[in-house]
Design a protein around this nucleic acid. Sequence first.
DNA 1: ATGAAAGCGCTAACAC
DNA 2: GTGTTAGCGCTTTCAT
Lengths: 334, 334
Amino acid sequence: MKKVSIKDVANLAQVSIASVSYVLNKMPNNRISEATTKRILEAAETLNYRPNKIAKSLKTNQSKILGFIVADIANPFFGQIAKILEEEAMQVGYTIIVGSSGENNEKFEKLIDFFIDQQVDGLILAPVENSQESLKKLQKQNFPFIILDRYLENSTANSVRINNFDISKKVIDQFIKTNVKNPLLVTYDSDLLNLVDRNNGFYEGINQSKIKTLQPIKVRTNSINEDVFDGLTKRFSEELKPDAIYFTSNKLAFAGLRFLLKTTYKVPEDVQIIAFDESEAYELFPIEISYVKQPMNEIAIKSLELILDQLNNEDKTNKIINLEAELILKESTR
Amino acid sequence: MKKVSIKDVANLAQVSIASVSYVLNKMPNNRISEATTKRILEAAETLNYRPNKIAKSLKTNQSKILGFIVADIANPFFGQIAKILEEEAMQVGYTIIVGSSGENNEKFEKLIDFFIDQQVDGLILAPVENSQESLKKLQKQNFPFIILDRYLENSTANSVRINNFDISKKVIDQFIKTNVKNPLLVTYDSDLLNLVDRNNGFYEGINQSKIKTLQPIKVRTNSINEDVFDGLTKRFSEELKPDAIYFTSNKLAFAGLRFLLKTTYKVPEDVQIIAFDESEAYELFPIEISYVKQPMNEIAIKSLELILDQLNNEDKTNKIINLEAELILKESTR
DNA sequence: ATGAAAGCGCTAACAC
DNA sequence: GTGTTAGCGCTTTCAT
């Protein structure tokens, strides 16, 4: 089965390839007569002509492909975003290619290069630790990209984020409202500012109150389960035991809940829980988990909008889109 | 920042673009002198030259892109496969684009067309119900594709699957071994043969034994949670209550476990459980779930191998790669 | 209202 | 050993 090209359509319709191009691309000031238009349309139909996007890309210098680089596509948070992104992108004629960096900056850079070589028009990035340089390089090259979910120091890049500080403040305020004495923060040991903000919001709430917090558990991204488990074991073995825990990511919460399952501590009687991110998985915990709900649809849709804006407009002003996360209270809080 | 092309490299190195192409593509019988080679390499280096894959694609008629169409990229099963696939593909210079059909055949077809328009070299497909026609169409066009995970009637397509029948037989045998009286099958109402095989393996075990099975719960893919919940409510309200349940997918198991959480039935004392697929999520259930473990890495790697074989070789024989799933016994079985 | 033709960046057959 | 050149399928300027 030989591929049918624009030439074949032109031949069948007895016109030039230019006319075929005009008609099929619905050019605005297309001065092709109705009769010819009809002939061309019919010819394309009978031959089942499908334009070659590669050829078009080469000519127009636009691949209509966007690269999406996440930490881990097997993480449902990113899977969900990817899904929405891909659907929305398709609506407007774009294709998404996804890559997983595995929280590794070298892989992150490699993926960026690979995608640029692939001639993506732009990139949607969830950066990893120490990726400032990679981002600066992109900026220097003037390559279109936006930052999603995570953000870094001094970043002047367009980005879509949530109100990490405020929502964390709300979390601790919720705890305080219920007379918590020893709240515990379980978070990452990371320079990613979204995480730092989550931590800071928590501390802001602590500072405004009269209570003290236990020393936080700060885990490394490459040993989440072990670090959470060890950390919690330690905290619960001490005099002042946590009576409320805030997990700043779904993976942390997951590890923490597994720990609690193996103990006799009761949620929320002995210890209250608030997790970050919605997760189907939480639903198998014996009681329903309170959590910070991120606006997944909005994150994906705004990200797409932002990168497309950047591709189409000359408006080079720095845009930061701040979306609102929501605290959903369930049975794991009092 | 203007893009640097092969011409720029040729100019700087004072050679023709052909020579640049030869050197940079490491042509086997490359007769370029060492000195020239060095000059070209240096020029490419200084200019930070990155070949334009779009142009190369147009010329070679190979995009080095593979399309991967799954039911739902937010389902960790497919997320995991996608991740491995993407990593392996990148090693050999291929890019993966992923699409989610949402178990909808129209979306499935639309994605296929979209990806073909995008000039993918081949497709890796997890088909949906009623997608026989879409697959036949692809076959008629002689378009390279393989089937992953799921399979359909009369499919003569290359495919990678697991031993669905045998592993299900093992599941019921395990139940029978522990003197189960009223095993229950929770499965889909589907014409996908991988699911039919899972059902048949279960029945084969039943038939070889002296026990009877309860009437299975067959759910529709668009209302899993409700159907499982309603079905289980009904079964547990009857005289003969299930004392063992086999869920033929991770989503079914998930819904079923949520049901059990809300009841007072004890696992495994009152009812034993075996689920399909490994899932991090199961870990939040109070006891560990026995499950059928699919060889994710192998599935992804073999799929890639198979489609690449099909692209490179003339060997048009029909290949079915059968991989072994494994029954992992945990606390939810006796 | 339509067509001729240049050219996007690259590969590869062929010439020298 | 190295260069010339045709051409992949398309868009778009310019001519007519």
